[in-house]
C-alpha cells in the first residue's frame, strides 16, 4: 500500500496551495498587528484606568505596559477569533473533497481510507502548529519592538506578577497547550466536515459548539457546575494558567489529557465513519 509520507506530503501540498490557508494566516497576523497598534495608541490610557483600582494598595514602579503584556493580551484572541480562523480550514478538509468531487479521484487510487484519514489529520496538525506559531510571533515580535520587555501583571484569579525572565518559557508552554486545544477544536470541525460533507455547515456547527460551550462555562452555579469538566472551553481556557505566579501543572495536565482524549475519540469516530461510508456522488 501507498507510503503514508507521500500522502501527508500531498495533503500539505493541497493545504498550502490553497488561497484560504493564506487568508487565515493573513487575518491572524493582521489581528495581532491591530492589537499592537491599538495598544500603542490607547494602551497608556487603558492601563491608567485599570490601575486606579489597585493604586491604593500598590506602588507601581516600572512600565506595566510592555511587550510581554501586549503579547498576553493578544493571546486572548484564543477565545473566539483564533478558533474561528482555524475551523475554516479544519471544516473544509473533507468537505471540500466531497463538494468538488475529488474524494472519488483519491479513493479510486490504491490507498486505504484509514491512511488517507491519517494523512489529513496529520496535515491538519501541521497547519495548527504553523498557524499558532505564526500568530504568536506576529503578536510577540511587534510587541517587543514597540514596547520592549518587562514584568507581567495579569488579572487572573486576583493579581499575578510574573517575572520578565520567566515569560518566554511560560509563553512557549502556553503555546503548546493552546495548540493542543486548537487541534482538538479542529478535530471537531473535521468530523463535522466528514459527516455533513459541507464546509459552511461544518463551520457553523463548530462555531455553535464553541459559543455554547463558552456560554455554559459562565454558569458556574447549581446544576450547571456539574457540566463544567465536559465543556471544551473550560479546558482550553487553561492556557492562561501558565501565567499564574505558581503554575498549577496538575490542573493543566488534566485538561491537556481531556483535549488529547477528545482528539482520540473524534479520530476514532471519524475512522469508523469514513471506512464504512459509501461515496455515491
Amino acid at each position: 500500500m501507498i507510503d503514508l509520507r507521500n500522502l501527508i506530503y500531498i495533503e500539505l501540498y493541497k493545504l498550502f496551495s490553497s488561497t484560504r490557508t493564506y487568508v487565515t494566516f493573513f487575518i491572524a497576523i493582521a489581528l495581532m498587528l491591530i492589537i499592537n497598534l491599538g495598544m500603542l495608541m490607547e494602551g497608556e490610557k487603558i492601563f491608567e484606568f485599570l490601575l486606579e483600582s489597585i493604586s491604593e494598595y500598590f506602588i507601581v514602579d516600572g512600565e506595566i505596559l510592555n511587550g510581554y503584556l501586549v503579547t498576553y493580551l493578544a493571546m486572548n484572541t484564543l477565545w473566539v477569533h483564533i478558533p474561528v480562523l482555524i475551523v475554516i480550514i479544519a471544516a473544509s478538509i473533507f468537505a471540500v473533497e466531497f463538494e468538488i468531487g475529488t474524494i472519488r479521484l483519491l479513493l479510486t487510487q490504491p490507498i486505504s481510507r484509514g491512511r488517507l484519514l491519517q494523512a489529513k489529520v496529520l496535515a491538519m496538525v501541521v497547519y495548527n502548529c504553523v498557524f499558532m506559531l505564526l500568530t504568536v510571533l506576529a503578536a510577540l515580535i511587534p510587541a517587543y519592538l514597540l514596547f520592549g520587555t518587562g514584568d507581567l501583571v495579569v488579572f487572573l484569579d486576583g493579581v499575578q506578577f510574573i517575572q520578565e525572565e520567566t515569560f518566554l518559557k511560560r509563553l512557549v508552554l502556553s503555546l503548546i497547550f493552546a495548540t493542543i486545544s486548537m487541534i482538538a477544536f479542529s478535530s471537531l470541525g473535521m468530523i463535522f466536515s466528514l459527516f455533513f460533507k459541507n464546509t459552511l455547515t461544518s463551520i457553523l456547527l463548530s462555531m455553535g459548539v464553541l459559543i455554547l460551550s463558552t456560554l455554559l462555562q459562565k454558569f458556574v452555579f447549581g446544576l450547571f457546575s456539574a457540566w463544567q469538566p465536559f465543556l471544551f472551553s473550560y479546558h482550553f481556557s487553561k492556557w492562561q494558567l501558565f501565567f499564574m505566579d505558581v503554575i498549577p501543572y496538575h490542573s493543566i495536565l488534566e485538561s491537556a489529557g481531556f483535549m488529547l482524549g477528545m482528539i482520540l475519540i473524534l479520530y476514532l469516530i471519524s475512522y469508523f465513519k469514513f471506512k464504512k461510508m459509501n461515496i455515491t456522488q
Binding site: I2, I100, T108, Q109
Partner: peptide, 25 residues
C-alpha cells in the same frame, strides 16, 4: 475513470497528475 471526473481546480492539469504520481509513488 468515474463519470464527471473531478480535479483540484486551483492546481494545473499537470499538477493534478503530479499528485497522482506522488500518491502512486
Amino acid at each position: 475513470m468515474i463519470d464527471s471526473p473531478a480535479f483540484y481546480p486551483y492546481l494545473s492539469g499537470r499538477q493534478n497528475l503530479q499528485l497522482i504520481c506522488k500518491i502512486l509513488g
